[in-house]
Write a protein that binds this DNA or RNA. Structure first.
Lengths: 334, 334
DNA sequence: CTGTTAGCGCGTTCAG
DNA sequence: CTGAACGCGCTAACAG
């Protein structure tokens, strides 16, 4: 705790608290001379106004919360980067809450954060069941929420996402063009819009290419914790020649499985995945990737938050979509 | 802001504020009956005590700050994970501040954070010049600081790090055992203890193996932003057969350069690096890695913070070292 | 231009 | 067992 406070500083200067206080805010209303004097002494004593006391008065914490499923995920890392950049520019502070894909924890956070600790919440949903109900509760309060990436279509809130359907369509088409006839798809929870959209893009691409959609080629990896087994099953029993993973983590697990099973990438299996691994296109031989504009999404989401904080109330619902980037890898392509 | 406050809740119940307040803290001193009544009604109205008002009274924010150079770095991500885990368990909140390797920004944060916004600071230094002076200033205040990973030997504070010298020794020795005769080393700022230690381990390994240390084989990548050029120079002019990178980012850049220059890893160049990339040993063919116990370091650092917060004042300086893990890659090894 | 006063929402003596 | 009253550090009328 800052040891010197407003009262002490005022006494030092033989001024009243309000005068000193105003010297920091209203540049007018205070003579330049005394203002100078106050600021100098304040610097000397290293006076730091207590933000919470100020916030108590102004009803603002200058803080936003970022609630995300996990942080060991390059998408979220880059998103945080974007968020933090914007927040820093606005003089705001960023709190991080990790739900670890635990929906009850997510709910607890959101509930708790209604207490005024933060002015707004940036939320990316955990892969649990429908969040609509719980989010509607929060909509009633006046604390703004912006959903990003892992959104829920049912909820009326601002949403920032990427073009999941289109990107998935392109990714799947990429595999088809590379000669794949039997393309598997790895996905997370069916309850997430993001999963459904990616599945949808995959389906459409198959359809447009005249390939049949087979349900058994789609593996939902959210239910069990042991996704590896599911992937092993998929590869061994169905022997797909292409695989489109909707999520980086699942692609990485696929790599591991392939190594174990002696499945050669890209000869035996061509792989493409959503991923924000640093220079993924370099490190992953044979892996084409769909790179989400994570930093941008974070940035835009944060900007929306600050817009909302200014125009409190004008909560026109809108969804912003920022396209992803498909990076093709030669070795997959032939 | 939580719409219902203590006063309103008290009025609802025909009780005084203090009674209600005590119902939440002192389980004694309040009859079980009224306590029950209060808690139920509180839940109904979704009463959330304002943490800042409470903190104003108790002089605690229940918040810790994590000040780090960057977040697009797997070490820091995992460290945050560890920190957040511990903090969450303690009911604490975590604020993130990214200095982007900008020392003036770092200083500004540390300065600013003296205002009571956080109870303690977890700090990993940016790669600037000596931090000793600036940190000593902060030592005078009563806000605890724990340094982790990127520490400064000059400062009297608790420090959590890994066994940089030993790990680097092992890593370099690994290259030597793989037959390398001319081993380069990539490092960051000389001002960071971590860089020096890693360099030191490298030197010792060379010495013990009877290899001469050559200054030109060591590239300090902190000064210029275009590290790639430096690496290109190194590889083209000196043609090392082994390379030990002290930092993940530099190893990744080396990969890129090698691809451009058509240098084959591991045939032409054997590579080993500190890295916390997810399953780095899988994704990076030919790359042996030194994996830092990032999560553990974060956890221990956070635990130290909470110990400090309890035993305020007893700031016995100590350094905790947690060993890294060397993962050898067959392809490097022969 | 400066000072007085009254809260922001909560915790905490101290009476009763 | 309960309530009245004060103060945490600061802002914002309102006076002067």
């Amino acid at each position: 705790m800052s040891t010197v406070n407003l009262k002490q500083l005022a006494k030092e200067l033989n001024l009243s608290v309000s005068t000193v206080s105003k010297a920091f805010k209203n540049s007018y209303d205070i003579s330049e001379a005394t203002r100078e004097r106050i600021l100098t002494r304040a610097k000397q004593l290293n006076y730091q106004p207590n933000p919470y006391a100020a916030g108590l008065r102004t009803q603002r914490s200058q803080t936003i919360a970022v609630v995300i499923p996990e942080i060991a995920n390059n998408f979220f890392v880059q998103a945080i980067n974007g968020i933090e950049t914007v927040a820093q520019g606005m003089g705001y502070h960023v709190m991080i809450y990790l739900t670890h894909e635990d929906q009850s924890k997510e709910q607890a956070f959101l509930q708790h954060l209604q207490n005024g600790r933060v002015d707004a919440i940036l939320l990316s949903l955990s892969s649990g069941k429908d969040h609509a109900q719980q989010l509607k509760e929060l909509q009633k309060r006046d604390i703004p929420i912006v959903l990003f990436d892992r959104i829920d279509t049912q909820v009326d809130a601002i949403k920032i996402q990427t073009d999941n359907i289109e990107s998935s369509y392109k990714a799947t088409t990429h595999l088809i063009e590379a000669g794949c006839k039997k393309i598997a798809h790895l996905t997370l929870s069916e309850k997430l819009a993001i999963s459904n959209d990616r599945l949808e893009g995959y389906k459409r691409a198959l359809k447009d290419a005249g390939l049949k959609f087979k349900k058994e080629l789609v593996v939902d990896c959210s239910l069990t914790k042991n996704n590896e087994d599911q992937i092993v099953q998929l590869l061994q029993k169905l022997r797909p020649d292409g695989l489109f993973s909707g999520f980086e983590k699942l692609a990485l697990q696929t790599y591991q499985v392939c190594e174990k099973l002696n499945v050669n990438i890209p000869n035996d299996l061509k792989l493409i995945s959503f991923s924000n691994l640093p220079i993924a296109e370099l490190l992953n031989p044979g892996l084409s990737v769909v790179v989400q504009p994570a930093f941008e999404i974070g940035k835009v989401a944060a900007e929306m938050i600050f817009e909302l904080l200014k125009i409190k109330g004008s909560n026109r619902i809108k969804t912003i979509t920022i396209p992803s980037h498909l990076i093709k890898r030669k070795s997959t392509g032939n």
